Simulated scan of single mutants.
Amino acid sequence: MTSPDALQDFPLELDQQLCFALYSTSLAMTKAYKPLLEKLNLTYPQYLAMLVLWETDDLTVKEIAARLSLDSATMTPLLKRLEAQGYVERVRGVEDERQVHVRLSDAGRALRQSARAIPTEIYCASGSDIDAILRLRADLVRLRASINEYIDQ
């Protein structure tokens, strides 16, 4: 690991910053997803919520928000739109009415099949082989964990 002192003279230029490489790549990734998701009538954040629900159905808004590293207030309008589209239903908890459970509808479960080709399209758009993509993903997961650990100190 490089010491902070060794980075003292690191150039303070936009194209040399890790944060900008991640930010601009994230923007490009979202743009690549846009036409694929438009076919499903989903936004990128809605797609992420659906991915969570396809993994584990019947979660609370709080659980979905935690899985996506978002706050519950951000999730509520997104989930309302998914409900209006007929992909999910939101149900107040029986034991605790403050909790809202989100469940896939039949249309939401069927949408999963329509979305199956999206990851392949994105892998092809990357121009990398699958092993390189999997290594990059693993590196990014480690980076996120390290940064979260730093933040939580």
Score class of each variant (00 low, 15 high):
130 I>D: 07
85 Q>V: 07
56 T>D: 08
64 I>A: 08
22 L>D: 02
27 L>N: 02
15 D>E: 12
136 L>I: 01
26 S>W: 06
84 A>T: 10
85 Q>S: 15
22 L>V: 11
21 A>E: 14
151 I>E: 12
69 S>V: 11
44 Y>K: 03
57 D>C: 05
82 L>D: 02
22 L>W: 08
76 T>V: 15
67 R>H: 13
130 I>A: 03
149 E>W: 07
9 D>T: 02
24 S>L: 08
1 M>H: 12
88 V>I: 11
2 T>N: 06
18 L>R: 04
44 Y>I: 05
138 A>I: 07
56 T>E: 15
9 D>G: 02
94 V>I: 10
120 T>P: 00
132 A>M: 03
96 D>T: 05
23 Y>P: 00
27 L>T: 05
18 L>G: 00
153 Q>G: 14
55 E>K: 13
122 I>T: 02
90 R>K: 10
139 D>W: 05
75 M>D: 03
101 H>Y: 15
76 T>C: 01
6 A>M: 10
52 V>A: 09
123 Y>D: 04
70 L>C: 10
145 A>K: 15
128 S>P: 01
12 L>F: 00
62 K>A: 11
6 A>C: 10
50 M>I: 01
40 L>I: 12
27 L>D: 05
74 T>S: 13
146 S>L: 13
112 R>Y: 11
24 S>H: 05
55 E>V: 02
145 A>I: 06
114 S>Q: 15
57 D>V: 06
111 L>H: 04
20 F>Y: 11
118 I>D: 01
92 R>M: 14
96 D>C: 03
7 L>F: 04
153 Q>L: 14
5 D>L: 08
42 L>W: 07
43 T>K: 15
87 Y>Q: 06
99 Q>S: 09
130 I>H: 05
20 F>R: 07
19 C>Q: 14
121 E>T: 03
49 A>L: 07
41 N>D: 14
61 V>K: 02
107 A>M: 08
91 V>W: 11
94 V>D: 12
123 Y>H: 03
27 L>I: 09
102 V>N: 02
65 A>Y: 04
150 Y>P: 01
68 L>H: 08
96 D>F: 01
60 T>D: 09
65 A>Q: 14
134 L>W: 10
75 M>F: 10
117 A>D: 08
60 T>M: 04
135 R>C: 09
